[in-house]
Design a protein around this nucleic acid. Structure first.
Lengths: 115, 115
DNA sequence: ACATCAATTCGATAGTTGTCGAAACGTCGA
DNA sequence: TCGACGTTTCGACAACTATCGAATTGATGT
């Protein structure tokens, strides 16, 4: 398994997604802002398709700032923005967080003798 | 490399470490700088006790900047700095990266119906 | 056509921070 | 005691960015 293209994209996550160095830094920078992280958490907590208005209510920031953060999360590849009429719906793109998580895990000290 | 007071701590990682919101944001901010992340990677790649001089050679930054980044990683709780005479040795603190990794994992969309 | 609403873009501002050189500090060997 | 060396602290500066209000775009309903 673990093929590059998964056709069953619906239910379970599990997408390999090897991240380049550039992607990693982009993702970490996107995650580093508290409000942006809260936004991601809000998207995660809602069962994925989160309306932009709901997001604006969850965080307490102006629409302009929210739009900025959304674009930031989007260009880093963390979320997907689906536009429907005048609304926008935010979903977490599967695989990215897992890949980041896995990479971080790989840095942890497996055996660090002299502490 | 003989450690003066080696009292044989726990060898393997596996420390629970629940992170507070404040800790999470601190960690993510610490990870968000490319140089700092490279530094962490360097510490990880070396088998943990990384000398400050080696770090200075790995990244190409001034001693002042390196010191700044070290402090940043330290206060975020990601690394431990052991001072020995005029040297400093950097080790990754066990549990933290794992905890962060786990938390990120928990945000990923387990079941996201409408893509 | 018009008004309304959601979202984005623009311009500006304030705060943050990565970076360095120079000076200072602490340690070690001579 | 002195000088060399590793590391830190101190300003200072430049670049970045989070934030907002106002103006704009685009879509919807009347």
């Amino acid at each position: 398994m673990a093929s590059v293209h998964s056709e069953a994209r619906s239910v379970a996550a599990a997408k390999p997604a090897k991240l380049s160095r550039t992607q990693r830094t982009a993702i970490l920078k996107a995650l580093s802002d508290p409000k942006r992280f809260e936004l991601l958490e809000a998207i995660a907590r809602s069962h994925c398709p989160l309306g932009c208005t709901a997001a604006h209510e969850a965080l307490s920031i102006s629409p302009a700032t929210l739009s900025h953060h959304i674009k930031e999360l989007q260009t880093s590849g963390l979320i997907h923005v689906r536009r429907e009429g005048k609304f926008a719906f935010l979903t977490i793109r599967p695989g990215i967080l897992e890949a980041m998580s896995t990479y971080l895990q790989s840095l942890s000290p497996t055996a660090c003798p002299t502490r």
